Computed example of a mutant assay.
Amino acid sequence: MAANQAAVVKLALGLMGLCLAGYLLGPPLYWHFREGLAAVSHSSSSPTCPPCLCDCSTQPLLAIPQELSNATFADCVKHDPEVSEDAEKNFSELLTEELKLRETEALESQQRAGMALLEAKKITSQYQKEADKCNSGMETCEEAREKAEASLVAQKKLTALWETRARQKGWKEGAATKTQGSSVQSA
């Protein structure tokens, strides 16, 4: 029975491993396969296009004549190695500038986050100090309350002891108020 369970666990782990490998390796392999198919179908279906016969250097970039369509002019520029190199250089310069700008923004954002974190730590420290003071004051008050309560209990015991002694000597509660009232009248 235990061997059966161990075999089931091994099988389950093996399936999980295969699924994980497929999940991780599947998409890159799919895209490489797809690019390969596109390259094969592109090279076999369309023969190499003849070089462009137009002279792109004589054409102004902004003023395109009506007889040339946008696609024709774009094809002409695409096949010109000098224009392609310039375009690539400009494109790479733009990308470099964009990366530098994003890096600067990321550094600024990181600095702001760092400052906010320091401020939060400072405020947290202040609140912790206040909480410690409050807890200390509460402990002091609690100790004073306990002492006062113990003193009250001791005072009640002493009062009860004196009252017991007074009763043993003949003191009565009602008689004490009459004698106090008569002594006040005689005075």
Rank of each mutant, 00 (worst) to 15 (best):
N90L: 10
T96L: 14
A144L: 09
L107Q: 14
E105F: 05
A131S: 10
D132W: 01
N135V: 15
E105G: 02
A160Y: 02
K89I: 11
R112S: 04
E93R: 08
L152D: 02
N90S: 11
E139I: 04
A116V: 04
L158T: 10
S84Q: 13
Q126K: 01
A154W: 00
K156S: 02
W162Y: 14
K100I: 08
A116D: 02
A148P: 00
Q110D: 07
S136L: 04
G114T: 03
E105I: 03
E85M: 11
Q111V: 06
G137L: 15
M115D: 15
A154I: 00
S92E: 15
E103W: 03
K100S: 07
R102M: 01
S84I: 03
A160G: 04
L95H: 09
E82Y: 05
L94H: 14
R145I: 13
A148V: 01
Q155H: 07
E93Q: 15
A113N: 05
K156N: 09
R112P: 00
V153E: 04
E85D: 07
C141A: 14
E97H: 12
R102E: 06
T124R: 11
E146P: 02
N90Y: 06
R112K: 09
R145K: 14
A160I: 03
K122A: 12
N90A: 09
A87P: 03
S109E: 13
L99W: 09
E139W: 02
S109K: 14
I123K: 11
L117Y: 12
L117V: 14
Y127D: 08
L158K: 12
Q111A: 12
S84K: 14
E88Q: 10
D132F: 04
Q155R: 13
V153R: 07
S151W: 05
K121P: 03
S151L: 11
Y127K: 12
A154D: 01
T164W: 09
T140M: 04
